[in-house]
Computed example of a mutant assay.
Amino acid sequence: MTLSDSVRAITTASGDGLIDWRAVTEAATAAVDPGELSLSAAERDGYARDVRDARTRVSEVAGVDFDVPDTIEVQNRHHWIDANTATFERVLGTLETTGPGLAGFARVLNTGSMSVALAFLANNVLGQYDPLLLAESPTESHALYFVQPNIARVADELDVAEERFRRWIAFHEVTHAAEFGAAPWLPDHLEARMEQSVDALGDGRVDRQSMRELNAAMTAVEGYAELLMDRAFDDEYEDLREKVEARRRGRGPIAALVRRLLGLGMKRRQYERGKAFFEHVVEARDIETASLVWGAPENLPSDDELDAPETWLARVD
């Protein structure tokens, strides 16, 4: 498939909704090289070992027991697009056209925007813990993905050993599995706010409260993961973080624009803000107190408390 196939898929988008998800998959796949996915036995064993070791270390550090996902996939970029198109469709698929006037144009525009987003992410995502929010089947609990072509390429670009880089990614994603394992109520909490936000958009409104609560929850998720990584990873990794950040800053203006449009700058802000919150809590108390955040939905810090950890401590400790 070629770029022209991608454009054709977008311009012929059809259906009743505001996004043609079949066309999204076809267009994003056509625009992205799938990448090499031939793993040696040693590499397959390495992924399994990294995930297993990460689970052990994170359990020890956090003091919580959790299961790693049954679904652990080493993917190429097309595999990742397939999995995440399904995720986006679950979240946004309830949006319907509001009238025949501009429905076709809006569908093409939205389909194109989603295709560009997925193609960009497929070329850049390294690993992903997927809680499979809004999944219809109760057996689909969560999944863990590693995009091998991206891991190999970025390790080479950063001039670091691929095995060490892969292990770092595995540890980070397993910390997210620990959070959702410690807080079985978390998927429902996130799903409710996502649905409220999407429903409001479908009505032409912006539900700022739901979006604020969703952002606060995700900030806690990202910040706690960073806290665990600092304590669980069995190697120094500041050099890896610095190289990844330098690579991100060195991207061209188009990539920077796409990242901004996708909200990836906000995700970086969630990392930084959440980590600062939990570091303050641990310094003032300990990691067990920080872990209280997963005790119940009401234990999550509010948006204001994220910038005033002592207020959160006074409320829950």
Rank of each mutant, 00 (worst) to 15 (best):
T85L: 05
A122G: 09
N110H: 06
L227N: 01
R231V: 00
I254Q: 07
D50H: 14
G265W: 01
E140T: 03
R8G: 12
S59A: 13
L95D: 13
V7A: 15
R55L: 11
D303P: 00
L261Y: 03
W185L: 09
V74D: 06
R249V: 07
E195T: 14
L214K: 02
E163T: 09
Q128L: 05
A42N: 13
T289V: 09
D235A: 07
D5C: 15
V24W: 07
R166M: 06
D45P: 04
G15C: 08
R107T: 08
D188L: 14
A296C: 06
H176W: 03
R90T: 11
L118K: 04
R285T: 09
T289A: 05
V125L: 06
A308L: 08
P187Q: 09
V281N: 04
A192S: 11
T12G: 08
T98A: 14
T219W: 02
P253R: 14
P138Q: 14
I72E: 14
P149Y: 07
W80A: 00
P131Y: 07
R90I: 02
P187N: 04
N123S: 06
L37H: 10
M218Y: 06
L133P: 04
S6T: 02
H172T: 01
G63A: 01
D230L: 13
T12A: 14
A9S: 15
G35K: 09
E279D: 13
T97V: 04
E238V: 06
L306G: 00
G112L: 11
V51D: 10
E222M: 02
R57T: 08
A155V: 03
E162P: 02
A170V: 04
A170T: 05
A284D: 11
D304G: 05
L262N: 05
R57D: 13
V258Y: 08
V32R: 12
V198S: 03
T29K: 07
A178C: 15
V51G: 03
D67I: 03
R90F: 08
V64M: 07
V58L: 04
A86E: 14
S115Q: 08
D20A: 10
A54K: 14
E283A: 01
L186V: 05
R205S: 09
S40W: 12
I169D: 03
S302I: 09
A183I: 02
D303N: 12
G63N: 02
P301H: 01
Y47T: 12
T94P: 09
V316H: 10
A192F: 01
D53V: 07
G17T: 04
D65I: 01
V147E: 05
V24K: 08
V281S: 01
D33Y: 08
R205M: 11
T25N: 05
Y271M: 00
T12R: 15
H189P: 02
A31T: 03
A217V: 00
A182W: 12
V64N: 00
D130G: 08
A135C: 15
E162Q: 08
H176P: 03
E191A: 08
A31M: 03
D82E: 13
V61F: 00
V64H: 12
D159W: 02
G263W: 06
P253A: 14
Y47C: 10
F88L: 12
L102R: 11
P184Y: 14
E236D: 15
P131R: 05
D16P: 13
E136K: 15
D50T: 01
L39G: 13
R49P: 07
L262G: 12
N299Q: 11
W312E: 03
A54P: 10
